[in-house]
Design a protein around this nucleic acid. Structure first.
Length: 175
DNA sequence: CACACGATTGTCT
DNA sequence: GACAATCGTGTGT
């Protein structure tokens, strides 16, 4: 059994050109248009999974991407899941959406899972950060100005943005 | 049916 | 800082 504290998220909604739901329902994103509280998992770059929590009502395509977390329980197991090639531990264990999925063993087979009834993976109420910071989202090209990335101020478990990603010259957006 | 691309990460220089 | 890995998906023909 593993337990983590969600440290960083990003929001995606239907009016948002960066969102998978922007152009309507497809086989891949149909869960986003389903009921809130369900898990939306997709494959990115042909090798990594990312997980989201569906938010809006049935019929509206939106979700929150889980980007980073603090490991709390079952750390050895998570490290093992992350260490297919080289040993992984510490800050990089859960700092990134694909790392988080790999550590928790989340894949496309869990797409559509109801987090409110599942005994495989779920979310519990925790203590919110004293202050929540917002920045532009990481790794997107369209909708890049919206400050829809959220994390607690000075939280060391937040993932950091890479220097120059797609598009414009280096912009400091990590915090 | 063909094809360009992506809500990333690890490794190398 | 740069680049490769790797393939499902959406869009266009």
């Amino acid at each position: 059994m593993a337990k983590v504290r969600i440290a960083e998220t990003e929001a995606y909604d239907q009016s948002d050109p960066a969102s998978h739901s922007f152009r309507g329902v497809t086989p891949r994103n149909q869960v986003m248009f389903g009921h809130p509280g369900h898990l939306y998992v997709y494959l990115i770059y042909g090798m990594h999974f990312c997980m989201n929590v569906v938010t809006d009502d049935h019929g509206t395509g939106s979700a929150v991407l889980l980007r980073a977390a603090e490991p709390l329980v079952g750390i050895a197991a998570m490290e093992a899941n992350r260490s297919s090639r080289r040993p992984v531990s510490g800050r990089t264990l859960l700092s990134g959406p694909a790392r988080l999925c790999q550590a928790l063993g989340v894949d496309r087979s869990m797409d559509g899972l109801d987090l409110s009834t599942s005994d495989v993976i779920w979310i519990e109420q925790g203590q919110p950060p004293a202050k929540i910071v917002t920045t532009p989202r990481i790794g997107i090209s369209r909708g890049a100005d919206a400050r829809w990335r959220f994390f607690g101020e000075a939280d060391p478990w937040v993932s950091s943005a890479r220097p120059s990603v797609a598009g414009s010259p280096r912009r400091r957006i990590d915090r």
